[in-house]
Design a binder for these strands. Structure first.
Length: 213
DNA sequence: TTTCCGATCAACT
DNA sequence: GTTGATCGGAAAC
């Protein structure tokens, strides 16, 4: 049987928990992006946890900077960063108690506003590739640094909101090493995805870039 | 002030 | 499986 979709925004308390609890609990939730042309909605299918002070892979590991300041603020807000000179990636800040941790949104299934997402993702050959990967997800939803710090706890109609959606039973959640994280940070199985979901991005181990001679 | 390289994607072979 | 694109944060000098 299929559980009903909950359209109540997730509360601040939802995010004010250890990131390893929040991350798998975000799978199956509904992310709503209000654009000037209309809403785009996404069912979250893949996420990664980043646990600030303990985690060499986290942007917050070396302390607060102008870029990562939002991670040190209240939970339930959006942290957006720019990477590889051309892409944006989107995180949801978690708690508890101001601990600078966050969940990277890696992939999702576009359920509403598919046409709007396609316009921003012209190279996608299938709809399941619209948000298959963190930078693709941000591109499809028209997310950039101007949304850094946005409150994602509603009300609906705000630029970004996360609704209750349809939580995924733990039996349908897979875990594994994080993608593209170097060194000790790769050891933890802090990547979570919905088992056998076609919108989950392929795993790639971290590959050091070769120096030009 | 300079250098290095990244929580990536897409287009190649 | 490999490589180029292209910018900015932060460590190294």
């Amino acid at each position: 049987m299929i559980a009903a979709t909950d359209r109540t925004p997730l509360t601040r308390a939802f995010f004010d928990r250890p990131v390893l609890e929040v991350a798998p609990d975000l799978l199956g939730r509904t992310l709503v992006r209000a654009t000037p042309d209309g809403p785009i909605e996404l069912r979250l299918t893949e996420v990664e946890a980043y646990d600030g002070p303990n985690d060499p892979g986290s942007h917050a590991y070396r302390g607060r900077t102008a870029r990562n300041g939002v991670m040190f603020g209240p939970p339930g807000h959006v942290y957006v960063y720019f990477t590889y000179g051309m892409w944006h990636c989107m995180n949801l800040v978690c708690g508890p108690g101001g601990r600078p941790s966050g969940v990277l949104l890696r992939a999702g299934e576009v359920t509403v506003g598919t046409e709007l997402a396609r316009k921003r993702r012209l190279s996608a050959r299938h709809d399941r590739e619209l948000a298959k990967g963190p930078a693709r997800l941000a591109t499809a939803l028209d997310v950039d640094r101007s949304l850094d710090g946005t409150d994602a706890c509603g009300p609906e109609g705000s630029p970004i909101t996360v609704l209750g959606g349809t939580p995924v039973p733990s039996g349908q959640v897979s875990t594994g090493p994080r993608t593209g994280v170097a060194g000790d940070g790769a050891a933890h199985p802090w990547r979570f995805w919905i088992s056998n979901d076609p919108t989950v991005s392929p795993y790639r181990a971290h590959t050091p870039r070769r120096r030009s001679t």
